[in-house]
Amino acid sequence: MSAEALQTPGRGSGFADLFRSRFLLKLLVAKELKVRYRGSVLGLLWSYVKPAVQFVVFYVALGIFLNMERSPTNASGLPNYAIYLFSGIVLINFFTEALGNASRSIVGNGGLIKKIYLPRQLFPVASVWVSGVHFVPQIIILLVACLFNGWRPGLLQLAAAAAGFLIVALLATGLGLLFGAVNVYFRDAENLVDMLLMIATWASPVLYSWIMVRDKLGETFFTVYQLNPITVGVEAFHFAFWLPTTDGAESIPPHLLSVWIPVGLAISGLVLLTGQLVFRRLEGRFAQEL
Rank of each mutant, 00 (worst) to 15 (best):
2 S>Q: 09
8 T>F: 09
14 G>E: 01
18 L>K: 10
18 L>F: 11
18 L>N: 07
18 L>G: 12
19 F>M: 10
22 R>L: 13
31 K>D: 12
35 V>M: 12
35 V>Y: 00
36 R>G: 00
40 S>V: 03
42 L>W: 07
42 L>G: 10
46 W>D: 06
50 K>R: 14
51 P>I: 01
56 V>H: 00
58 F>Q: 01
60 V>A: 08
70 R>G: 06
73 T>K: 09
74 N>A: 04
75 A>K: 10
76 S>R: 10
82 A>P: 00
84 Y>M: 00
89 I>H: 01
90 V>D: 03
98 A>H: 12
104 R>E: 09
108 G>V: 09
110 G>E: 04
115 K>R: 14
118 L>P: 01
124 P>L: 01
125 V>F: 12
125 V>L: 09
126 A>Q: 04
128 V>W: 09
131 S>N: 05
132 G>V: 04
133 V>F: 12
134 H>W: 12
143 L>W: 13
165 F>Y: 13
171 L>N: 04
174 G>Y: 04
175 L>G: 08
175 L>W: 11
175 L>C: 11
176 G>N: 02
177 L>D: 07
188 D>R: 05
204 S>A: 15
206 V>R: 05
207 L>Q: 04
209 S>G: 14
212 M>V: 15
214 R>D: 03
214 R>N: 13
215 D>I: 10
223 T>Y: 14
223 T>L: 15
224 V>E: 11
225 Y>H: 08
226 Q>K: 14
228 N>K: 10
229 P>N: 04
234 V>Q: 08
237 F>W: 06
239 F>W: 07
240 A>L: 04
246 T>P: 06
261 I>E: 05
264 G>R: 11
276 Q>D: 03
285 R>K: 10
